[in-house]
Design a protein around this nucleic acid. Structure first.
Lengths: 243, 243
DNA sequence: CGGTTCGTTGAATGATCTCAAGTACTGTGG
DNA sequence: CCACAGTACTTGAGATCATTCAACGAACCG
C-alpha cells in the first residue's frame, strides 16, 4: 500500500506570513501585530513535497504542527493487522498534527497527495505562546473543539448511515471545505486522493465505492469522472448532510 | 471502538484539600495551591441527579464543563430523522462537555443514567484561568488531544471491525476504565446504561447486540446477565483491543 | 396483579464484502 | 508517438453479516 518512499525534501525557504494573512482561516488572523510577529518568528515554510512523501510517521516524537499552505495530505493509522486506515484529509489552510497534542508521539502518518507546501510550527514554542495569549489559545481550542465535534459527527454518521448517504455527506463536506478555503463555489470537486483512499476513509471496499458512485451518477446527483466529481444536485447532497 | 473515553484514565484520584475532596479532583492536580484555590472558588457541586435527568441539551448555550463525581451519564446527538444517537458514556472522574469547547452551544444532550453527582465548572472562567496558567492549559489540551485520538481510533475500529469485535473492544474498555477509576480488577462489569444504549452506541440494532452477546457467551468469553456482564476471558477481550 | 418497557429469538430481506475478471489510465522506454 | 507493464478502477455473481419484521418472555412499577 505504501509504494514509494521518497526521502523528505526539506527545502528551507524563509518566508513571511504572506501566505496566511490573506485568508481568514488562519491562526495568525486572531493576533495583534505584536504577537503575530512572535509567531512569525518561529514558523518555517517547508516544501515542495511530492505525492507519497511522508511528513511524519506514527511513533515519531511529536514536536511540530503543520499548517497546509497549498496542496493536500491524508493521515493514516495502522490497524493491528498492519493494514493502513485513512483517518482524514487535509487541504490548504487546515491544521495538521492536532491529534498529537498532549501525546509524545504522532498517532498517525501524514502522507502528501500532490505537490504541497507546508508551514512548520514548533509545537513547544507554539503552545507556550498560546498560554500567554488568550486570543491565540481560543483559536487553538476552537480548532480542537471543531475537530472533536467533526469526528464525533462523522463517527455517528458512519454508524448509522448507508454507503450512499455517507458518500453524499463526504462529497458535500469536500465541497464545503473548499468554499471555506477559497470562497469559490465551483461544483467540480478535484480528487487529489485516490479512490482507494476515499473508500478506505468511508469504511467501504473500493468495489462498493465504485458501485455507490455509479448509483449516485444514475440518480443524476453527481457526474463521476476519474480525478474529479461534478456535483450536479447540491440540494440533494446538502440534504444528506443536515443535522 | 471504545477507547473513546479512555483518555480520561489519566485522571488522578487525588483528594487534597477538603474543597476538592471529591470534586474536580483531576484538573486540580496540575495546579499550585494558589491557582487551585482560584479554581476551587469557581466550581460548584451539583446533585443528586436521577436517571433520565438531562444536564444540558444540544443547542443550549455552552457555559459549563462538568466533572463527574459519582454516577454515570451518556451523551446523545439527534440524527436528522430525529432519532437519538448515543455518542459516549461518562463515569466518575471523567470530564463532560469538552466537545462544546470552541462552540457557542452544546452539540449533544447529556443524560444521567443513575444517581449522579457532578461538579460544575464555569467554562469562561475556567478557560481564562487556563490562559494564564501553562500547566493547567497543558492539562486541558492534553485531554482534548486524548479525546481526538480516542475518537479517531474508535472511528477507525467502527469502520473496520465486525459486531463481535466491536463489542469485545467495548467491554474491554469498560473494564479498563473501571480499573483506572477504582483500582479494582473485578471481572464483573455493571451496566448502568440500557442494552439499547449500548447497541445504539455500537451502531447495532438491539437485536444484533443480543445475538452477538449470545455468541460471545457460547464461546465462553463472557457471561451475559441482565444488568451486568462477567468477563470470563480477559485475554480474548484485550486481544481484540490491541493496536 | 396488570400494563409497559426492555430484552430475546426466529425467519426473511437487504446491504456490503469477497472473489474473480475485465477495462482504463499512467508512466516508461523505445 | 506508440507499445508495454503496472496500477487503479470498474463490473459481475455468490457468500456473509446485519437489519427488519414479528412474536414472545422477563423485569419493573404502579
Amino acid at each position: 500500500m505504501d509504494k514509494k518512499r521518497r526521502p523528505l525534501r526539506l527545502v528551507k525557504k524563509r518566508q513571511t506570513a504572506e501566505h496566511c494573512t490573506s485568508r481568514g482561516y488562519c491562526l495568525l488572523s486572531a493576533l495583534d501585530p505584536g504577537h503575530a510577529e512572535l509567531l512569525n518568528a518561529i514558523i518555517r515554510t517547508r516544501g515542495p513535497f511530492r505525492a507519497g512523501d511522508r511528513i511524519y510517521r506514527h511513533g515519531e516524537p511529536f514536536d511540530t504542527l503543520y499548517s497546509v499552505q497549498t496542496g493536500s495530505l491524508k493521515t493514516e493509522m495502522a490497524t493491528r493487522e498492519g493494514r493502513a486506515q485513512v483517518s482524514g484529509f487535509y487541504f490548504a489552510g487546515e491544521l495538521l498534527g492536532t491529534d498529537a497534542i498532549g501525546a509524545r508521539t504522532y498517532p498517525s502518518d501524514a502522507v502528501v497527495l500532490e505537490q504541497t507546501w507546508l508551514c512548520a510550527i514548533p509545537a513547544r514554542q507554539f503552545l507556550d505562546l498560546c498560554a500567554g495569549n488568550p486570543a491565540l489559545q481560543e483559536q487553538l481550542l476552537g480548532r480542537m473543539g471543531d475537530r472533536i465535534r467533526a469526528d464525533e459527527y462523522g463517527w455517528m454518521l458512519n454508524r448509522n448511515e448507508r454507503a450512499e448517504q455517507r458518500l453524499m455527506i463526504f462529497l458535500h463536506d469536500l465541497y464545503q471545505r473548499r468554499v471555506v478555503r477559497t470562497g469559490r463555489r465551483t461544483t467540480v470537486v478535484e480528487l487529489t486522493m485516490r479512490k482507494e483512499d476515499i473508500a478506505n476513509y468511508l469504511g467501504l471496499t473500493p468495489e462498493s465505492l465504485s458501485r455507490t458512485l455509479r448509483k449516485l451518477q444514475e440518480a443524476g446527483i453527481i457526474d463521476s469522472r476519474l480525478r474529479a466529481i461534478e456535483l450536479l444536485d447540491l440540494d440533494a447532497l446538502s440534504a444528506a448532510d443536515e443535522t
